[in-house]
Design a protein around this nucleic acid. Structure first.
Lengths: 366, 366
DNA sequence: CTGTTAGCGCTTTCAT
DNA sequence: ATGAAAGCGCTAACAG
């Protein structure tokens, strides 16, 4: 019976390589990792050969400890499987990969989880922390989060919010209000007069801004939104679906029966988010109502699949992936560039493209 | 003018805490991180207070170096924004988080990138590497990848494939053939006789298995698939769309004109993957054909949004998130449990639920 | 160009 | 129960 020799065999270390190549460990380090190589060609070759032979892989953690930082950033989202976050993540991962930086994705759905996630992240001393969270601007954890991030920045890290900045840190932002006004204008111009609105939590920054923009235009147009036609929810497919089902159950959807708009029912649904809009469309169908025909629907975000539902969703285009990239760029940018403008704290990072309306089939002219 | 004191201020270290609490660094370590705490209550309190006061956060890298491993696993996908991967990722992240493990997500779209990603991952000495890649079972990198992973396993790591294992390592698998036969049977039983098939690359394992299952049933039913009605592509929305557009351009879609099935055209589309099916439906519409009415459509996977397209997609349900969880479980499971069954190499990890067909509107009876 | 030698922050025997 | 000290694998001065 063989000796217990199938134990885990640890990977070759720099020292192993140095020995094999008969050079000092410092030299080995220089050729294998160091930047400006000032090594004799002969040693270089010897080290490379030894490394290959031993299948050497540097220990990233040891490097990180020795250097003080590691080439990685962490991205916090509330749900990776939400197409919105998926698109942002894609941009983040791509931009990071191009710079040789890896990204750790953490999921945090509640303010509490978020705080915990940030704490854990800080332990990892990343170059930056991107928070692409979507809920709650005012939670009890808010203060603790701010403290944590401030501390983190003081130690050289960079915190960046994406689209829903609710604390004094740099943030990638888009003109939510502009997009909201555009979509509302389209509603008005297309002849709709009795909209329902599907919004997010009032503490949700983006939702609030979009709502404000929409209301402004509606007001100007002399359209009064029936309070009963404004539904709350999270920015999720499920809540969009639920909101419409609720309206249906209350008999608020059908003209005549409904108490909405003096019994005339709604003629459109303005969802402040694409997935809500998609959920709403499905719910409409579940009630025998053809979305886009009987009731116009609009979204916000232009996630990839908004073009594949039927009728295809008219929505506001947000450059999701670019926003993710911008966040990474911001983290990796020169650390002192905020000095001149009074610190980095409140810097807003705008992505080039504007939030334009994408016209598709879900909102035909009346 | 103040001294340059706004420099990055490094976070408190264990030593700082120890000093502050007036105990040894070892004691501090024990209360803050060590498992079985055998520390006097008094010291415990002192250390905790000091840690809080100094806002101590352990340096994860230093811990990793000292311990030899770190609590993290890496997940490789080819595209996070694909709902399929997003769902799997969700399961992975969730399961990992429950065990206090963080997951680093890497994106690798080509075999080459994949190999590079694995190499980089290994540097990070993770507990495990999950590969949820979808293309190419035979690429030149294949051998190198196997070597790399074998080495990795030898050093105590765990490699796990998800659904598309193409190398001798453990894999989370589902009975693709069973699902495929079921969907094909449904096609036949529903009265369809002239299907088009949208498949992935022939080197793609899942695609191959599904195709085989479908063909088997079709054969049994005496249905001969017109070769021109079989389209290749990647498992992507875009390729599904493109495949159908291509058929349309070639005049293969419409009865009479088409050369398919003796000029009678296809009556259904069997996509071996949901996103392809969704792309195909949109393409059908772009050609004035109503999916689900004129031409039946089926998918495979049951991604979240397959219920939101119209008509809702009839597809094979795959427990995506559960598969991700299973991969994590496998990595974290006892390392020696494979011994009895002749090693861990070829172990297949089946997830409980079966690949059942989900009946929705896209495939009405004829 | 290359080797020596301190650390980096933390864990973990080994004594006490 | 607690402290001293030896690493973990690697980088970065600092001398040659």
């Amino acid at each position: 019976m063989a000796v217990q020799n199938d134990k885990a065999q640890s990977p070759a270390t720099l020292m192993d390589v140095a020995k094999e190549a008969q050079v000092s460990i410092a030299t080995a380090s220089r050729v294998l990792n160091g930047s400006t190589r000032k090594v004799r060609n002969q040693s270089y070759v010897k080290v490379m050969e030894a490394a290959t032979k031993l299948n050497y892989r540097p220990n990233a953690y040891a490097q990180a400890v020795a250097k003080g930082t590691a080439p990685n950033i962490v991205l916090l989202v509330s749900d990776i499987s939400d197409p919105y976050f998926a698109s942002v993540s894609q941009g983040v991962v791509k931009a990071a990969a191009e710079r040789g930086i890896s990204v750790t994705i953490g999921v945090a759905a509640t303010p509490h989880e978020e705080l915990e996630a940030v704490r854990k992240s800080v332990s990892t001393r990343p170059r930056g922390i991107i928070i692409s969270e979507s809920e709650y601007t005012d939670a009890p954890e808010r203060q603790a989060l701010q403290t944590e991030l401030t501390q983190y920045e003081a130690s050289g890290g960079r915190a960046v919010f994406v689209l829903n900045r609710n604390l004094p840190f740099p943030a990638v932002d888009m003109a939510n209000d502009v997009g909201a006004r555009a979509i509302a204008k389209l509603i008005v111009d297309s002849g709709y007069t009795r909209p329902a609105i599907l919004k997010g939590d009032d503490a949700h920054r983006s939702s609030k801004e979009r709502l404000a923009g929409v209301m402004e235009v509606l007001d100007e147009a002399g359209i009064t939104v029936d309070p009963k036609a404004v539904a709350n929810g999270k920015f999720s497919r499920t809540d969009g679906y639920a909101a419409v089902m609720q309206m249906a159950r209350s008999g608020l959807l059908k003209p005549g029966e409904g108490a909405l708009y003096d019994g005339k029912g709604i003629d459109s649904i303005i969802a402040l988010n694409d997935v809500m809009a998609i959920g709403a469309m499905t719910a409409l169908r579940a009630n025998g109502i053809e979305p886009g025909r009987e009731i116009g629907v609009t979204g916000f975000g232009d996630i990839p699949y908004s073009a594949d539902v039927f009728p295809p969703l008219t929505t506001v285009h947000l450059p999701l992936a670019e926003m993710g990239q911008a966040a990474v760029d911001s983290i990796l940018s020169n650390r002192d560039d905020g000095e001149a403008t009074g610190g980095t704290a409140n810097r807003l990072i705008y992505v080039q493209s504007a939030p334009d309306v994408v016209l598709r089939g879900s909102l035909p002219r009346r």
